[in-house]
Amino acid sequence: MSAWINLLYIISSILFIFGIKKLGSAETARRGNALSAVGMTLAIVATLLYLGLEWWMVMLGMALGSAIGYAAATRVAMTGMPEMVALFNGFGGLASLLVGGAEWVKLRDGGWVHYLEGLKAQSGVAVPAWFACVAIGLTILVGGITFTGSLVAYGKLSGKLGGKPVLFAGQQVVNGVMLAVAMACLGGLVAGGDGPIALGAGLILIGLSLGIGVMMTIPIGGGDMPVVISLLNSLSGVAAALAGFIILNNVLVVAGCLVGASGIILTVIMCKAMNRTLGNVLFGGFGASTQGGG
């Protein structure tokens, strides 16, 4: 990755920082959003300067995504916007999962040595094998949780799923077990390298991450969904930052991390505005109607 590309990445990171800052105050919010959009455009243009991309796929994919995103964003009714944000957030999470997946496919296809050499050629940074694998596993885990969690939040907000919390006996135990098995799979992915055990562990990890996202969101009532979407937004930032650690890309790490950190703070602020704590929202299992407000 040339110095020019990295220089442009730094500028776009600065634009994201000012963008978020300005979004926090009423007079400058719209300009802040525009500023961060310029930052994003710059980051994309800088990436396109990287030689050797499959151009027709790049152009087709970007055109398709832009058209769908634009159509959805302009057509949604004013009242439907929060759930649309949840849906977009879910797509972002899935995109991060797939970035992790694509890197995993590359690794499995060419083997360790070849993959790490390619990574070094692209980013200029040499990493140990275990690091790449941990980053891939965590990206898949967090991306998957973000995806299905956001889909459930979308369903609850739009009324497609019903806003009532879904609770059953031993729910926390089931969630704990799922998370523990996911961690074990992550271990298998790292220890198994490019062998068959890692393949199984990785596939189970993908399934579990999607399951955990659902399990995490269903016990929360529809009235608390804005807080949950804010938390999932933070998670999608973390997923992007983790994806940045796979490909050793500074703009992904910085921008993703900014969203992750500011998203957590915003989530806590939103909880406070409802006179609740985050733990209370996540594990309280109520807030279906009376507690929501905010």
Binding site: V58, A239, N249
Partner: peptide
Amino acid sequence: QLHTPLMSGSNAISGITIVGALLALSE
């Protein structure tokens, strides 16, 4: 009143994963 726009705006920034996605398309 800015909570939702701020959430939505930072959600757009988390789409930065596009950079990783594009780099997966090396020929």
